[in-house]
């Protein structure tokens, strides 16, 4: 079975939608390549103000990350897509790296500082766990099939894609809404700073419709990208990250029957491409330089980057996305963009 991405929606610090994101990539390409790490803009999706939403289905949720996820999934699923898709065959796989920590710390703080330790905000309780957005999206769009939440640091988007592909190959769903999100809040920024993360934190959400190629064609949807390979590994020490990542790249190329020289575009999460010498002929686009550190949404945005630039012939074809997280995850995804 060929697994393809047939639709995409996103919001980034550049704005809501793929248009502003693509414009940010263009600006970087025009400027002769991305800026060095550490000078990316970072920041919030300033245009996204769920409390002011004029949408027919206003977003009223306990927290911002879920509101971001719902709005992004909504943009991915026009009525005609849902109409042709039985609810119990609709799967959802969402991921983030840190959602729930901000809400959890608020709850613990209130328990520690208020006159009574149980004087917390009850509405916050469900948003303290990471499946809140997945559950809310299921309710909103009647997604009754498999509903999973995954987390794997900056490789989360690749883990979500792999989960989605497996649901399809096992026949557990007709298609999968697959995405990743991360909101920006003071605690996330403080935790990243204390942990030594250099890139400025950014927020964003990105979602894909993942389905068999035959189904996309039957429904008249474009094949934005075929997912040729997803490979991942774990490194115990930072010094091992390069070797583990190189192993995943080797396996991915083997699986796709491709040579390193075939890769037209490389989208790394940081500067890990320095260790992938065999890919030196590929053009390099660094999503993190464009938008900042998206944490759990990072890899999904790297996939989106590869898809967004595929209208330019030199950047179309085999695209390799690599992800390395200081927590120990390393992984890659080989796409064929069209």
């Amino acid at each position: 079975m060929r697994t393809v991405i047939s639709a995409m929606s996103l919001m980034s610090p550049a704005g809501i939608g793929t248009g502003p994101f693509r414009a940010a990539i263009d600006a970087a390409l025009l400027a002769g390549g991305p800026q060095p790490l550490g000078e990316a803009p970072g920041g919030r999706v300033e245009d996204f103000r769920p409390e002011e939403s004029a949408s027919a289905r206003p977003v009223r949720l306990a927290d911002r990350p879920s509101a971001m996820a719902i709005a992004t999934v909504e943009a991915l699923l026009p009525d005609d897509v849902l109409a042709a898709w039985p609810p119990d065959r609709r799967a959802l796989v969402l991921g983030s790296g840190a959602s729930g920590i901000d809400q959890s710390m608020t709850l613990t703080r209130d328990s520690l500082t208020r006159p009574r330790p149980d004087n917390i905000t009850p509405a916050l309780v469900p948003a303290c766990v990471m499946n809140y957005a997945s559950a809310q999206a299921a309710i909103r769009f009647d997604l009754r099939g498999p509903n999973a939440t995954v987390t794997a640091g900056r490789a989360t988007g690749l883990a979500a894609l792999r989960y989605a592909r497996r649901l399809l190959t096992r026949g557990r769903a007709d298609a999968v809404v697959c995405g990743a999100y991360e909101d920006l809040n003071d605690r996330r920024a403080a935790i990243a700073e204390a942990a030594g993360i250099k890139a400025p934190p950014a927020e964003g959400c990105c979602a894909f419709l993942v389905e068999p190629g035959t189904r996309a064609r039957a429904h008249g949807r474009p094949e934005l990208a075929e997912v040729l390979a997803l490979e991942s590994g774990v490194f115990a020490e930072p010094a091992d990250a390069g070797a583990v990542l190189a192993g995943t790249v080797r396996r991915a190329l083997d699986r796709a029957g491709a040579d390193p020289g075939d890769v037209a575009l490389l989208v790394p999460s940081g500067d890990e491409d320095a260790g992938l010498g065999a890919l030196r002929d590929a053009r390099v686009l660094r999503t993190a330089d464009l938008v900042g550190d998206l944490h759990g949404a990072a890899a999904a945005f790297q996939v989106a980057t590869a898809i967004a630039v595929a209208d330019e012939a030199p950047l179309r074809g085999l695209a390799l996305i690599t992800a390395v997280d200081p927590d120990g995850q390393a992984g890659c995804c080989l796409l064929h963009t069209r």
């Binding site: 794997a152 490979e231 590994g233 774990v234 115990a236 583990v244 927590d327 995850q329």
Partner: peptide
């Protein structure tokens, strides 16, 4: 971060070639 739970298992067992995912 919760994603570290699966990393802990892989590191403890010395398994670099695994698909490690935390499912929250």
């Amino acid at each position: 971060h919760a994603g570290r739970l699966s990393v802990a298992v892989a590191v403890e067992l010395g398994l670099p070639n695994v698909e490690a995912v935390t499912i929250p």
